[in-house]
Simulated scan of single mutants.
Amino acid sequence: MCVHTEEAAVLKSGGSRLLVCAVALACWALVGPSAPGGALSGGSLPVEAVKDVLPNRVMTWNLCNPCDASNLDRAAEIAAHAPQVVGMQEACARDVDRIRDYLEAFHGLVYHVEYGTVLENWGRCGGAPWNPGGFGQAILSAAPMTDRVNVEYPDGGSEDRGYLAVTTEVGGRPVRVFNTHLAQRRQEEFRKDQVRVLATEVARQDRAIVLGDFNAVPQAPELGPMWDLATDADPRCHPSPVGTCAPTTDWQSKFDYVFLRGIAPGEHRVVPTEHSDHDMLYSDLDVT
């Protein structure tokens, strides 16, 4: 009997990722999409697999946790836009592993992954009580990543928060990429200190991309240090009240950002999704 691909991905700890992908493809070919609520759904698979990423495209996406979403559907949404780099927040390490495997198995997209775990939490990410799943940030990159730094903010507010930073390639150039998730709404006093910690590191970079869920609208005072260092991927979006910033959440607020330092923005888009309470946000960049 075939195992579903969600279950097959877990087996990668005892074998190669290629074997997992092969099992996933074989099972889908034999049994087809699973019933509603299962890992597979007929709308998840493209007619043709994507062959390559767009080398200058970056994306940020809060996956929503806990949310009843299929990792196969999440992978299909990412593959539809084929970014070079994806920053994920509210990400369980096991979910990210599966998303990466599905991107390769069903869409021909091969990514490296780095994790920015800030919690080991059974309630958030399952696992055995003595081995709960890791929760926090993650970065997928089509190019290798180096110089990984994972920082937990001194005070996360009601839940631990932090940022993950790596050096990778975007548009053929090395770039420092940050991925963060700030304290929850109505916790401005914590976000203020968190932004200061993050901005201090971003300021040391000549060229940087800062992805993440900042849980604050552009006019929020605590975002001031970021605006002093960087611009939004949407040139129309800025902290002035006359700025035009597309909302990125189900409650019609802009909380998700692609901040750029020393990099010019290109095409950008907020992509509505049924699989999270945050929309996907991507931008094509000019790193020259």
Rank of each mutant, 00 (worst) to 15 (best):
G212T: 07
G224Y: 04
W251D: 13
R185M: 11
G243D: 02
L229K: 09
A216M: 02
G171D: 01
V195H: 04
S141K: 07
T244A: 13
R148D: 02
C125G: 06
C237Y: 07
D160N: 15
V210H: 01
L182K: 02
R176F: 01
E159A: 14
Q205G: 03
P241S: 08
G127S: 04
S158R: 07
H181N: 13
V195W: 03
S158A: 14
L223W: 02
D213M: 05
A230E: 00
D147I: 05
Y163L: 13
G212S: 00
P132Q: 03
T167K: 15
P241G: 11
W130G: 09
L198N: 06
V197G: 02
P174C: 02
P132A: 10
E189A: 13
R186D: 14
H112V: 02
Q252Y: 08
E114I: 02
A128S: 14
T200L: 12
V149L: 12
F214N: 00
M145W: 03
G116A: 07
D155W: 07
T231S: 09
I209L: 11
P241N: 06
E188T: 14
A233M: 09
V175E: 01
D213K: 01
G212M: 06
V197K: 02
H238P: 00
Q137R: 04
E188Y: 07
W122F: 00
T231P: 00
V175G: 10
P225Q: 11
E120Y: 13
R236D: 15
V175Q: 09
G162D: 07
T200R: 15
A246K: 12
Q184M: 08
A183T: 05
G212D: 04
R176A: 10
R185D: 13
M226S: 10
N179Y: 02
A199H: 05
V166I: 14
I209H: 10
Q219W: 11
L223H: 01
P132D: 04
G134L: 08
L119I: 09
N179V: 11
V242H: 10
V242K: 12
D206F: 08
E159V: 14
D155E: 11
Q252V: 11
G116P: 14
P241M: 07
E188D: 09
R173S: 12
G212L: 02
W130K: 10
V151Q: 03
D147T: 10
G136D: 02
R191E: 00
S141C: 06
I209Y: 06
V197C: 06
V175P: 05
W130S: 14
R185E: 12
D147M: 06
E188M: 04
W251S: 14
Q184T: 09
S240H: 10
F178G: 11
Q137D: 15
S240K: 07
D155I: 01
R207F: 01
V113Y: 06
G162C: 09
G136K: 05
T231M: 12
L119G: 00
P239I: 00
E201G: 08
W251N: 15
L229D: 06
R186L: 14
H112G: 11
E189K: 11
R176L: 07
D234T: 05
A128H: 13
R148F: 00
F190S: 03
G116T: 12
